[in-house]
Design a protein around this nucleic acid. Structure first.
Lengths: 145, 145
DNA sequence: ATGTATGCAAAACATTTGCACCTGG
DNA sequence: CCAGGTGCAAATGTTTTGCATACAT
């Protein structure tokens, strides 16, 4: 249960935090902005402040419950940390995010860091491209003026 | 000469732009923030506005003269585009940036994008780690309180 | 009770834009 | 001359913070 995650992280179990975790778990889009979480909660009739969302996300991130990504676009997106590491590919048109994992790339990264004398701690790999989803294709031809 | 680069990009050759390109070329650190460029130019006695720096950088980027990166830390860094593509490894302590290129990784990325049905357009790969430069090692032990 | 969390409003940032004035070609 | 460039100040959008109140334990 999510309350246990919060307790393990040394955080008090409060309504806003539970709602946020619940949302992060159930939302269609697993990569949400702070503003997006805020708006979705308001729409769901929850009473919450945007500042609380940011504060809670920062704590979740520190506790490893959530990962923050900085894709292009000036705002951070948050993703519930579930299971193993993966990287992302983002559609430059519709913003759809897919996840992938590639052991060959992971291995090469470790080798490169070592060769350059770095103790590798983290990495971000994001591919940007045009996706082939029908919805995206449609909106693309429509937008062409 | 830099004025030619500007002309080729359809931009007028002005003092601020030349100074910026000059700085990007000669600076010790090849990865500068807009604010950093602004400050360095002021220190060098140049008269320039921060807005001009941002505007010029945006144009340089559009012209392919410069690449913008979003490393961790809330601000963009700009790098003069010189020669072939490469990725980065950043020291989480001193911020030092090294560049690398790995054909195996590049190839895997193309394969992954194709498999997921994306037409790959761009990517960012940044490794974060602890570098082994003496200066960084020193400051690290000092900061430990 | 008591240390945390919360909401709100204000602040802090990085970046962008409006506008009147300059300037390169 | 005049489209494009510049500086300044004001606006923007995102994220952070101060503070008084409310709540979990």
């Amino acid at each position: 249960m999510e309350s246990q995650d919060l307790r393990n992280a040394g955080l008090k179990v409060t309504a806003p935090r539970l709602k946020m975790l619940e949302l992060l778990e159930k939302a269609d889009d697993r990569h949400l902005t702070a503003e997006g979480i805020y708006r979705l909660l308001l729409e769901a009739g929850e009473e919450i402040g945007l500042a609380t969302v940011y504060r809670a996300l920062a704590q979740f991130e520190a506790a490893g419950l959530v990962t923050r990504h900085h894709f292009e676009g000036g705002h951070a997106v948050y993703e519930l940390e579930r299971g193993p590491h993966h990287d992302h590919i983002v559609c430059i048109h519709c913003g759809r995010v897919e996840e992938f994992y590639d052991e060959v790339i992971e291995k090469r990264q470790r080798a490169i860091a070592e060769k350059l004398g770095f103790n590798l701690r983290d990495h971000t790999l994001t591919l940007y491209g045009e996706c082939s989803s029908p919805a995206c294709q449609a909106s693309r031809s429509k937008d062409r003026k």
